[in-house]
Design a protein around this nucleic acid. Structure first.
Lengths: 210, 210
DNA sequence: CGCTAATCTAGAACAAGTTTCAGACTCGAT
DNA sequence: ATCGAGTCTGAAACTTGTTCTAGATTAGCG
């Protein structure tokens, strides 16, 4: 029940202490399996949120044995965090295509997050599954959570569109913005915050960049 | 597996649609049972965090049947959120005894939260159990989470020590501070943020009050 | 092609949260 | 003191995440 994270062998294809670079050599079929699993996870999540993503169901709908699913993703949390990684990559791509329009960094960040929020509103159950997994993740998932966190930071910093990188003060502000982003989503998902409050919180936190 | 929260009967003593005021009539023995359960929960949490609070163990160490435990707290999450409520009340009391020393509201708030953080550092496992439960809570716990949230807000607003109440802008800032407080704690608990970062994030968010 | 290690499958088994139930107990009102 | 409703107990059952195992398959290599 503990994922001590001591061992490698967490990803398929890992035999001992292979290189860490993301996509260690996967055969085509393995890549396809991984995709099918993530797709099944996403579909189930869209249908019923965190609870609806049941490992046996994911295994079945992706046509993979339960043991194999666990070889690819060592826990439900790992699976959902990977799903989030996937979705974030899509968002990042979309943003690259159509960057925010405002000029001030704080406004560009707010605009970016508000747009992301609009996307999540379209699939609130998926958001529920991903966000709850992300924040509930314990140490055994810290590497994966870190990846997501870095991706999010990148998205925000990209949105700021600074000539030089952000300074220390701005980095701390970005961390707080990220925290606010997650926590306000959680409050919204569990019905304790309205859409308007989420939007206001995003704008309020973004003000820290001024 | 769903706590539809439709029904009352969630607290012992509830027969149909009784009044909601917190402590509906409990006999002395019931009050004692409730205390014992919360104490057991706290002890177990201090020992091993969220995972160590196992319902069967809580029932056994508080000398209560499993079914009874579930009658008092309809889920593990409810139990841990109630535990947090308990601890927050203690904190509130301690703060009333020795209020923050700074003069500026933002500094008083930062001082208060930093002090609370120092307390949590003394029992990190307890913090883990309480905070993870709080953020993982779904709609079925929203009433209880709301109580905790209101208590937290009260603590912060009390710390500000304003002549009149806070205005709208300040209320939004307080929400963001609260979000930051929870999210930075989560990051610290799962080893993704250092103590120094937590402190800085608290100060950064508090700046929103200036 | 034939071999070997790694991978995959099916399914049982285990752990912890949650539910259920029959019977014993307690409380408040008569 | 007694009755009835509501509570508590102990134990089994159920659910879903996770682990384990024995045998079938696959990938890469000589």
């Amino acid at each position: 029940m503990e994922h001590t994270a001591t061992g490698p062998a967490s990803s398929p294809g890992a035999k001992s202490a292979e290189a860490r670079p993301s996509p260690l050599p996967l055969t085509e079929r393995q890549e396809a399996r991984r995709r099918r699993i993530l797709a099944a996870s996403t579909t189930l999540a869209c249908g019923g949120g965190f609870d609806a993503v049941q490992m046996r169901e994911v295994a079945e709908s992706s046509g993979v044995a339960l043991g194999t699913l666990y070889r690819y993703f060592p826990s439900k949390i790992h699976l959902l965090v990977a799903t989030m990684e996937d979705q974030l990559a899509l968002l990042h791509e979309a943003l690259r295509q159509r960057p925010p329009a405002a000029t001030a960094p704080s406004e560009r960040v707010a605009e970016t997050l508000l747009r992301a929020f609009r996307g999540l509103q379209r699939e609130p159950q998926l958001a529920d599954a991903m966000v709850r997994a992300l924040i509930f993740a314990d140490r055994s998932v810290s590497a994966e959570v870190d990846t997501v966190s870095r991706l999010t930071t990148t998205i925000i910093v990209d949105a700021m569109d600074l000539p030089d990188g952000p300074d220390a003060r701005q980095l701390s502000a970005v961390r707080v913005i990220e925290h606010t982003w997650h926590a306000t989503l959680v409050a919204w998902l569990s019905g304790r915050a309205t859409v308007a409050q989420v939007r206001q919180d995003i704008r309020t936190a973004s003000r820290l960049l001024d």
